[in-house]
Amino acid sequence: REWTEQETLLLLEALEMYKDDWNKVSEHVGSRTQDECILHFLR
């Protein structure tokens, strides 16, 4: 499923705060797994 604008904003926000702590990043996004966050980030 597609990422919403809100999810993408949360991802970018989390990356600024937590860098590459993907566990914390995915918790911050809330609706995505670590793997989904990493894959989206790599696009």
Rank of each mutant, 00 (worst) to 15 (best):
R1F: 15
R1N: 14
R1P: 09
R1K: 15
R1C: 14
E2P: 14
E2T: 15
E2Q: 15
E2A: 12
E2G: 13
E2H: 14
W3N: 07
W3Y: 05
W3M: 07
W3Q: 06
W3V: 07
W3A: 02
W3K: 15
T4Y: 06
T4S: 11
T4M: 13
T4W: 02
T4F: 05
T4R: 06
T4E: 09
E5M: 09
E5W: 07
E5G: 06
E5F: 05
E5Y: 12
E5C: 08
E5K: 12
E5S: 03
E5R: 05
Q6A: 12
Q6K: 08
Q6R: 10
Q6C: 04
Q6T: 07
Q6L: 08
Q6W: 09
E7L: 01
E7Q: 12
T8F: 07
T8D: 07
T8L: 10
T8H: 14
T8R: 15
L9H: 14
L9P: 05
L9C: 13
L9D: 09
L9R: 13
L9Q: 14
L9F: 08
L9N: 12
L10N: 07
L10Y: 10
L10I: 05
L10M: 11
L10D: 07
L10F: 06
L10W: 05
L11F: 09
L11Q: 02
L11D: 01
L11A: 05
L11V: 07
L11H: 03
L11G: 10
L11K: 02
L12W: 08
E13D: 07
E13Y: 02
E13Q: 05
E13P: 00
E13F: 00
E13K: 09
E13H: 06
E13S: 06
A14V: 00
A14H: 00
A14Q: 01
A14G: 12
A14W: 00
A14T: 00
L15R: 15
L15V: 14
L15I: 13
L15S: 13
L15K: 15
L15D: 14
L15M: 15
L15E: 14
E16H: 06
E16G: 08
E16M: 04
M17D: 09
M17V: 10
M17W: 08
M17H: 05
M17S: 08
M17R: 12
M17Y: 09
Y18T: 04
Y18C: 03
Y18A: 04
Y18R: 02
Y18G: 08
Y18L: 01
Y18M: 03
K19S: 06
K19H: 06
K19C: 05
K19A: 06
K19T: 10
K19L: 03
K19D: 08
K19N: 14
D20N: 09
D20M: 05
D20R: 14
D20W: 06
D20A: 07
D20L: 03
D20C: 08
D20Y: 09
D20I: 01
D21K: 09
D21N: 05
D21R: 07
D21V: 03
D21H: 04
W22H: 06
W22C: 01
W22S: 00
W22Y: 08
W22Q: 00
W22M: 04
N23Y: 06
N23C: 12
N23Q: 09
N23P: 13
N23L: 11
N23E: 12
N23R: 12
N23H: 10
K24G: 12
K24V: 04
K24H: 08
K24Y: 08
V25G: 01
V25E: 00
V25W: 03
V25A: 10
V25D: 03
V25T: 11
V25Q: 00
S26T: 12
S26Y: 06
S26D: 04
S26I: 03
S26G: 12
S26Q: 03
E27P: 02
E27R: 10
E27K: 11
E27Y: 03
E27T: 08
E27G: 09
H28M: 05
H28P: 00
H28Q: 06
V29R: 00
V29P: 00
V29K: 02
V29L: 09
V29F: 02
V29D: 01
V29H: 00
V29G: 01
V29T: 06
V29W: 00
G30Q: 02
G30P: 07
G30S: 08
G30F: 05
G30C: 09
S31T: 14
S31I: 13
S31N: 11
S31M: 11
S31P: 04
S31V: 07
S31F: 04
R32A: 03
R32D: 00
R32C: 04
R32K: 13
R32Y: 04
T33Q: 09
T33M: 05
T33D: 12
T33P: 08
T33I: 01
Q34E: 10
Q34M: 06
Q34Y: 11
Q34R: 10
D35A: 12
D35L: 06
D35R: 11
D35K: 11
D35P: 12
D35W: 05
E36S: 06
C37M: 00
C37N: 02
C37A: 05
C37G: 01
C37E: 02
C37T: 03
I38W: 06
I38M: 13
I38N: 14
I38H: 15
I38D: 10
I38T: 14
I38P: 04
I38C: 13
L39M: 13
L39R: 12
L39G: 13
L39P: 06
L39N: 10
L39Q: 12
L39I: 07
H40Y: 14
H40S: 04
H40D: 07
H40I: 04
H40G: 07
H40C: 05
F41W: 14
F41Q: 15
F41V: 03
F41N: 15
F41H: 15
F41P: 15
F41E: 15
L42W: 11
L42H: 15
L42K: 15
L42M: 13
L42E: 15
